[in-house]
Simulated assay, not measured.
Amino acid sequence: MAAKKPLCTVNAVVEAPCGVVAALLTAVSAGPVGSDNAFFLADGPDPAIRLRGGPSEFRAAIAGDRTGIRVEVDRAQAMLAVEGQWWFRAECRVLPHPKGSRMIQQVFNVATTGRWMVPMIARGVEGKQRQSMQRLLDRISEHLGCSAYLE
């Protein structure tokens, strides 16, 4: 996936150790999403999301999306990815930063058919991803008791 050009990239800083932030974001297992499981999805579109599968790839049904979502977790690389609809893939990596951790989120077009339609459908995706990342940062800040902000 890294060879493809992202549709957008959002960077953030969390003033907490990289290992702590990575552990929070990659704590994913089969079962209901909540503050102790798939934290990044706990504020999502469906409050009753249940993940199935594991240990590194999961699926969940989402209201209004007949294909649901797919979640990949690579704990060793401090990376998670969420795929949904027929074209969307967001990857989030946690890296060291002088103030603690840097989170880098990138959105990719993974459509296998109709790729040409994605630029029209994805219009405004960067703004939406910045808003989504800010909501996640607010929750991380509250959960870990630290500053977290967009760059």
Rank of each mutant, 00 (worst) to 15 (best):
residue 133 M to P: 05
residue 9 T to F: 05
residue 103 M to P: 09
residue 69 I to A: 05
residue 10 V to I: 15
residue 109 N to C: 07
residue 102 R to H: 13
residue 39 F to D: 12
residue 123 R to I: 01
residue 90 A to E: 08
residue 102 R to S: 12
residue 121 I to D: 02
residue 32 P to Y: 10
residue 90 A to G: 09
residue 28 V to C: 08
residue 35 S to A: 15
residue 109 N to E: 11
residue 62 I to L: 13
residue 17 P to M: 04
residue 145 G to A: 06
residue 135 R to Q: 04
residue 45 P to C: 14
residue 1 M to I: 04
residue 13 V to T: 12
residue 49 I to H: 04
residue 76 A to V: 03
residue 92 C to K: 11
residue 80 L to M: 05
residue 43 D to L: 11
residue 118 V to C: 09
residue 137 L to S: 08
residue 23 A to S: 10
residue 77 Q to P: 01
residue 26 T to F: 10
residue 143 H to F: 02
residue 138 D to H: 01
residue 2 A to D: 10
residue 42 A to D: 15
residue 59 R to A: 12
residue 121 I to L: 13
residue 33 V to K: 01
residue 38 A to H: 12
residue 31 G to M: 09
residue 82 V to F: 02
residue 138 D to N: 07
residue 39 F to K: 10
residue 47 P to E: 15
residue 66 R to N: 07
residue 144 L to V: 07
residue 44 G to L: 15
residue 110 V to T: 14
residue 65 D to H: 02
residue 50 R to S: 12
residue 86 W to E: 06
residue 75 R to Q: 09
residue 124 G to A: 05
residue 111 A to T: 08
residue 112 T to N: 15
residue 84 G to L: 06
residue 107 V to I: 13
residue 57 E to L: 06
residue 38 A to V: 10
residue 114 G to M: 15
residue 113 T to S: 15
residue 24 L to K: 10
residue 71 V to D: 03
residue 89 R to V: 00
residue 48 A to G: 11
residue 27 A to W: 09
residue 125 V to D: 07
residue 3 A to K: 13
residue 73 V to Y: 05
residue 140 I to C: 02
residue 35 S to L: 15
residue 83 E to I: 02
residue 82 V to H: 01
residue 12 A to H: 13
residue 85 Q to T: 10
residue 32 P to C: 08
residue 143 H to Q: 11
residue 99 K to G: 06
residue 5 K to G: 07
residue 26 T to N: 12
residue 149 Y to D: 03
residue 37 N to T: 13
